[in-house]
């Protein structure tokens, strides 16, 4: 096999793997705090991609759009928690889960209504078009940027969760909600903030993905299953776990795409099944 092709596929795998990790971390924060799998997480990802497309159309500036679009998704996340999830605390998890499922249908179909059912493409910003010569291969600049950006976001999420007071409260909330509220912390505000933060990470993952893979209404559904895999393998609220799991399935996917492109998505789930057969508790165990 051509080594330069192999090398650039591995790099591709790292780029998508970092985006998977970001999705997984966002999902993990929401899931860990609220105790429900957020079925709208994929739809929020797709919305991030479509919002950045529209903001670029309107303002003509990629960087501004990259700042604004994920905030829009985060705002929607806050709203979903405040108006949808919160009234359902007493009703139980099944209903909250159905709510997020209904919302994912609404957002996905809403995207088709607003932007149309046909896929679209988005160019990277002028600064990041073209490739860089890495010696073995020439690699697109924009993908390198995404790799760095996703790395920074993961680092930011880690610093926030591990080093700030609010992050500590959030981690404590994942461990034991009752204890946190007994300490006099407004647990509801914590939930809303967690949903907003998770939605922000989904939105920015989508926004960063748009120039790589283009946009189509079902991009979110595909991503949702992958985010679940990352959390199932990496563990809830486990950042290193999410990164390892994300990179593992990202690289596996792009390597399989070289030899058997049709199986490249199914392999993500096959890897998960294989890992769980050997380690039912996931890569790093569960709490």
């Amino acid at each position: 096999m051509n080594p330069s092709l192999l090398f650039s596929q591995i790099l591709n795998g790292i780029v998508t793997g970092m985006l998977y990790a970001l999705m997984g971390i966002g999902l993990s924060i929401i899931t860990g705090i609220l105790n429900i799998p957020n079925f709208a997480h994929g739809a929020l990802f797709a919305l991030g991609a479509y919002l950045i497309y529209t903001v670029i159309q309107a303002l003509g500036n990629f960087w501004l759009a990259l700042a604004v679009a994920p905030l829009g998704v985060a705002l929607l996340g806050l709203l979903i928690e405040y108006a949808g999830i919160r009234p359902l605390y007493r009703a139980g998890h099944d209903y909250q889960l159905l709510l997020t499922f209904g919302l994912s249908l609404i957002i996905t179909e809403g995207i088709i209504v607003v932007w149309g059912p046909i896929g679209m493409s988005q160019l990277p910003p002028a600064l990041l078009r073209g490739g860089v010569d890495l010696g073995i291969t020439i690699y697109p600049k924009y993908r390198l940027f995404v790799m760095a950006m996703a790395g920074l976001l993961v680092l930011g999420a880690w610093l926030f969760l591990e080093k700030t007071r609010y992050g500590a409260i959030m981690r404590a909330g994942i461990e034991d909600k009752e204890m946190v509220s007994l300490l006099g912390i407004d647990i509801h505000r914590l939930f809303t903030a967690a949903f907003g933060l998770g939605a922000y990470l989904a939105g920015i993952s989508g926004a960063l993905t748009a120039p790589i893979r283009g946009l189509n209404p079902l991009m979110g559904v595909d991503m949702l299953g992958i985010a679940f895999v990352v959390v199932a393998l990496g563990g809830l609220g486990n950042l290193p776990g999410a990164i390892v799991a994300g990179l593992m399935i990202g690289v596996a996917q792009s390597l399989v795409a070289l030899v058997w492109p049709e199986a490249s998505v199914a392999v993500i789930f096959a890897v998960m099944a294989a890992v769980l057969l050997v380690r039912p508790q996931g890569l790093f165990g569960i709490r």
Binding site: T31, N35, I36, P37, L97, L224, G225, F228, V229, V231, A232, L236, A266, I268, F269, A270, M272, A273, L276, P280, Q281, G282, I286
Partner: peptide, 16 residues
Amino acid sequence: RSGLYFIMLTFALNQM
């Protein structure tokens, strides 16, 4: 697995 993980696994394998 149980709880949240269980739900996510049923979904992920469905996707496969």
